[in-house]
């Protein structure tokens, strides 16, 4: 079977997965309506207002949420159909709370989340791979044992707590101890007090960027540390595995020095599975980090999905859910293809 057939099969499979996710999503977010008979419209308008509305107006109101008042089985099919059409045309409905299109709300927060998750993932991956390679060269050494124990510690750490600790130390105690010399913001993504300064200044953009980076630092470190342990362990174990292969023995027998063996022969092969992992990471990147974003009150998608869930703003949760799942499926697909392209030994099948 050739590459083309493989890709076609993967595409069909991916499409089926998307359909499954779309259906799952539909039922998940209509569970309250299905089980309890509560609709979002009930949360919006009072019983009195409801009685005063004409049947037509009520139907219009329900329709805004893709719903039908007192649905029977045919209405459910109709709702499902509307939902499918909307999903595949990119119409995610409107937020119950702000009455703005959900997609706009998401786009407003997406850059923040991408910035936070992107920078922290990159930091974690680079440091993880680097230390993993350094340690794998001498497995069982004191350095190796120490690094593995550290990675296990990070694995056991509730990352949001790490965030709280960093926030407490760097944004509360250190500013007090150093008289504000070392100081990080306690909350938020950007300081709105600087608004006038930024808008009335030719270099305002730079000030705003610096301010955002200042706010970004602590959550980025938190998530970076959280991700580091996994990349490090994966890299280390892969490389140790690779170093027992025959071709490494051959390389050594050729008289290459150990560094060349490690970096040219070992690392190249050990990076292959890493590529998959990295691609998958970026698949879940818009997932955000609900807990860390909540701790730092970062204006991103992770916190938005949670806040919307709490105030029962289902269209938002449903849309974010949908986007995350589809991105993850796409990333999986790309990871599979990358793996095949990078490793000539892979036979499609």
């Amino acid at each position: 079977m050739g590459l083309r057939e493989y890709v076609i099969r993967r595409v069909i499979y991916m499409f089926l997965l998307v359909v499954a996710v779309v259906c799952f999503n539909f039922f998940l977010f209509r569970l309250p309506t299905l089980i309890l008979g509560v609709s979002p419209v009930d949360l919006m308008i009072s019983e009195e207002l409801r009685r005063n509305l004409t049947r037509d107006a009520l139907e219009q109101l329900y329709l805004r949420f893709g719903l039908v008042p007192e649905p029977d089985i045919f209405d459910w099919i109709y709702m499902f159909w509307r939902y499918i059409v909307n999903m595949f045309t990119g119409n995610f409905g409107i937020s119950f709370v702000t009455q703005k299109p959900v997609i706009d709300e998401i786009m407003e927060r997406l850059p923040n989340t991408l910035l936070l998750m992107g920078t922290s993932s990159i930091v974690a991956i680079i440091i993880g791979i680097w230390t993993g390679v350094r340690v794998a060269a001498e497995p069982g050494s004191r350095k190796d044992v120490g690094a593995v124990t550290l990675a296990l510690f990070i694995y056991s750490l509730p990352i949001f707590w790490l965030g709280m600790m960093l926030l407490m130390i760097f944004a509360f105690y250190l500013p007090a101890l150093t008289n504000g010399l070392i100081s990080f913001p306690l909350f938020g993504t950007i300081n709105y007090d600087n608004f006038a300064l930024v808008t009335n200044n030719p270099l305002g953009g730079l000030i705003a960027a610096a301010d955002i980076l200042h706010h970004l630092f602590l959550p980025m470190i938190t998530l970076g540390v959280g991700g580091y342990g996994g990349y490090f362990l994966y890299m280390r174990n892969n490389l140790i595995d690779v170093m027992t292969e025959d071709y490494i023995l051959t390389a050594r027998a050729k008289g290459l020095d150990e560094n060349q063996v490690l970096y040219k022969h070992g690392l190249k092969n050990a990076m292959l599975p890493m590529v998959t992992i990295i691609a998958m990471t970026f698949g879940f990147i818009i997932n955000g980090a609900t807990l860390t974003e909540t701790v730092f009150t970062w204006y991103g998608l992770g916190r938005y999905i949670f806040d919307s869930l709490i105030i029962l703003d289902y269209p938002v949760v449903q849309a974010i859910f949908m986007i995350i799942a589809i991105t993850a499926i796409l990333a999986n697909f790309i990871a599979d293809l990358l793996y095949g392209v990078l490793d000539p030994r892979i036979k499609y099948g």
């Binding site: 997965l17 996710v21 997932n287 949760v317 974010i320 799942a325």
Partner: peptide, 19 residues
């Protein structure tokens, strides 16, 4: 299993716990 792996973990847990 593949299907569950692409569902975002914490958001799903949040949604189910809330429901």
């Amino acid at each position: 299993v593949d299907f569950l792996l692409v569902i975002p973990g914490l958001p799903l847990m949040m949604v189910l716990a809330a429901f």
